[in-house]
Amino acid sequence: MKHTVVRTKDIVLIALFAALMAALALFPPITIPALGVPITAQSMGVMLSGAILGAKRGGLSILLFLLLVAIGLPLLSGGRGGLGVFFGPTAGFMFGWVLGAVLIGYLHERAWATIEPFKSFLYCFLGGIVVVYAIGIPWASVNTGVSLVKVAVGSLAFIPGDMLKAGLTALAVVAIRKAFPAMHQPAA
């Protein structure tokens, strides 16, 4: 972005997408019978915020969402909230969300004019899965004392669900670009 100052429109978008993250927790989790792992819509919010708002605003909206959780609002899927969740085994994934949204945003900003579903999917995969797991897995390993490899193997069960979310986000992003082509230009 050309302007480094965060403008009112940016603050509004950041706050709206933080609230959107919270709203996604209300969608009931889908369970894939073969895996038995519940897929929640919330981590899709990370991909959507990054892809639609860009690196800076997207990352800040996730940070703001985590701040709301930290001050005690039960906004995480399953109605969890409060400082407690930041000390549990899965907290690393939430910290990973912020950096993941920044990377997804950066990549989408650069390619916004020519974005197509596969490209967007790839970016969401890199930021929303690779980055998030790269932070979440070591955190869980340190937090629980379980070896990195075992945590990584345990996390594999969530990859199919996250790939599905990356695919859905990609389709949504391409549709949003048609409706709001100027999304990644600084607010005038």
Partner: peptide
């Protein structure tokens, strides 16, 4: 940003 987000929570929740 925080106060806006607090205001938006029920709005977006209702919208969803």
């Amino acid at each position: 940003a925080i106060s806006l987000a607090l205001r938006f929570l029920p709005v977006i929740g209702g919208l969803a």
